[in-house]
Simulated scan of single mutants.
Amino acid sequence: MHSKHDWITTPVTADLLRGAIEVERTEHGVLPHRLPAWARAQYSDGQLAMAESQPSGVRLVFRTRATAVELDARPTKRAYVGVPPLPDGLYDLLVDGRLVGQGSVPGGNTLTIDMATGTAEHQPGTAGTLRFTGLPEGVKDLEIWLPHNETTELLALRTDSPVEPAPDRGRRVWLHHGSSISHGSNAASPTTIWPALAASLGGVELVNLGMGGSALLDPFTARTMRDTPADLISVKIGINLVNADLMRLRAFIPAVHGFLDTIREGHPSTPLLVVSPILCPIHEDTPGPSAPDFSTGQLRFRATGDPADRASGKLTLGVIRDELARIVAQRAAQDPNLHYLDGRALYGESDSTELPLPDDLHPDAATHRRIGERFAKLAFTANGAFVGLGA
């Protein structure tokens, strides 16, 4: 093991981070965010604050000869009342694009959430250290993908050889927005959430604005996307609007148009793919809201709405798919770079039979892989929306 005087400490700065929208300076380090401060100020919602500060798709990227790396971090770990303890968030280490190690940071703050009451309690904790040793000799590009499901304050980066920002590989930037499924819920690790898998297969750089419970057509999210440089853009819309029972059809249709209008203000001709929800049997024809269900001794979700309420404009996944297809077809007459993908092409009836959603709402690790591979095939190859733009 190296003695302390062998280590070189490099400040964690924005030029070493990819996939973050903004980097907040804290008392002891930096905190990556996936929404800018002005957007966060417009709605102080606990779920949104938690989701946008969890660094899904965010990675430290640098070039070095180092064979040993340490990262000090203070995670914020989630706990849910009535649910078994969650495993610690995983960090994935890639060397020249290949996964060579995984680890977690012990300790940290704890956010205890009571889904029955909608309350949360924050307990401060200590920082910890992630360590990777025995890395290959020679110059290499290292990527440390931060846990997709654990807010992560980065305090110090130490290596046994100097660090410099990795050169731009000239890859196109893919900006994606979606719900907890895009955020990576129930995936095995940060590089195996479906957008990360799809980005790797497509040969693009991911900026992931998938945010658990928060794909709600918020105007500040559209403005953030408008202002974020991107070569390819996708928005996956639907499940959160249903399970939050957020709006009726009368509000939904103009809100979709407004969201797309805003993105187009900053990206008038960028390939833009609208993706409807994957199959979710509980909400295909039954409106929300969703409610947690512990009756089986484990967390599942159920739909509490009445299918008859579709007549008065309540949203279901079936209604949303029909409307998104219609809206995209209508707009595409003047916007040839706008495309539609039915989410059931990523996960549909036969997939649901083979790989059912374990909690009736979120895919598991194997399903993330399937969705990522399907998306890459449908978007980055043949006649896909992002045709010819992959590796």
Rank of each mutant, 00 (worst) to 15 (best):
L16F: 06
R18A: 14
V23G: 02
E24V: 12
E27C: 00
A37W: 05
A39P: 03
A41H: 05
A41S: 13
Y43S: 15
A51S: 15
S53C: 12
V58N: 01
L60D: 07
R63M: 14
E70V: 07
R74A: 13
K77P: 00
R78P: 02
P87W: 03
R98M: 10
G101N: 09
G103Q: 06
V105G: 12
L111I: 10
T117F: 07
H122N: 05
T126D: 15
T126W: 03
G128Q: 06
L130Q: 14
T133K: 00
L142N: 08
I144D: 11
H148S: 11
N149I: 07
E150S: 13
D168V: 11
S180L: 01
T192G: 00
A199W: 05
M211T: 13
A215W: 01
F220L: 06
D231Y: 05
L232H: 02
R248G: 15
A251E: 15
G258I: 03
G266F: 08
G266H: 10
S269A: 15
T270E: 13
S276L: 04
S276D: 09
P287K: 01
P287C: 03
D293A: 05
F294Y: 13
R300N: 05
T304H: 00
G313T: 10
L315F: 04
L315E: 06
G318R: 12
V328L: 01
A329S: 07
A329K: 00
R331D: 01
A332T: 10
N337G: 14
L341Q: 04
T353N: 00
T353M: 00
L355N: 09
L355Y: 07
D360H: 10
D360Y: 04
L361T: 07
L361C: 04
H362I: 07
A365Y: 01
I371S: 02
I371H: 01
G384L: 03
L389H: 11
A391W: 03
